[in-house]
């Protein structure tokens, strides 16, 4: 089925089989393997991407369902070698260990800023991470990273909709 997609700022029209999950299109057809498949059962959030600024589990949406929408994956956040403020905060605050959940955590963090603003508190972040599982960190540094990333996004004026230099 003809499907119009804007992925990390690149508009394209593709022929997509209806049973293709968005995460399968991203990873298998577009080689955007930064979006991870942790559980494939809508639990873990490793596959989170932004669709028109909203975080969505890309294992639980068909590629044909995002026709006409703008998708931002983890690959679309940095501006060249300059990390997005939320990515930089994860690095600075040691918000990752094995890194498998990190793409989904960063995406969820950016949406938390969209929803609650740059001054979001730690309790709100912890609550809003209920759709993201991490098996390494115990979450404390992830929460610190998102809080620091939120502050940095407020200072730099980075968009919480996921648009980048590509857009």
């Amino acid at each position: 089925m003809q499907t119009r997609l804007t992925i990390n700022g690149n508009a394209q029209t593709r022929e997509v089989a209806p049973a293709t999950l968005l995460v399968e299109l991203l990873r298998d057809e577009l080689a955007l393997t930064g979006t991870h498949i942790g559980c494939d059962t809508s639990q873990c959030g490793a596959c989170n991407v932004l669709i028109d600024g909203q975080s969505v589990k890309s294992c639980t949406i068909l590629a044909v369902q995002v026709d006409g929408k703008a998708i931002t994956t983890i690959e679309g956040l940095a501006d060249g070698d300059t990390l997005h403020p939320m990515q930089a905060a994860f690095k600075e605050a040691h918000g990752l260990q094995c890194g498998f959940c990190t793409p989904g955590m960063v995406i969820a963090g950016i949406e938390i800023v969209r929803r609650h603003g740059p001054d979001v508190d730690a309790a709100t972040i912890a609550h809003d991470l209920e759709g993201n599982l991490c098996r390494c960190t115990g979450y404390m540094n992830i929460i610190k990273a998102i809080q620091a990333g939120a502050r940095a996004m407020g200072q730099t004026g980075a968009s919480a909709m996921g648009e980048t230099a590509h857009a």
Binding site: S42, G45, S55, K57, I61, R115, D128, E130, G131
Partner: peptide
């Protein structure tokens, strides 16, 4: 209901 990603859909 669910979690933020589920509520978005």
């Amino acid at each position: 209901i669910g979690d933020p990603q589920v509520r978005n859909r």
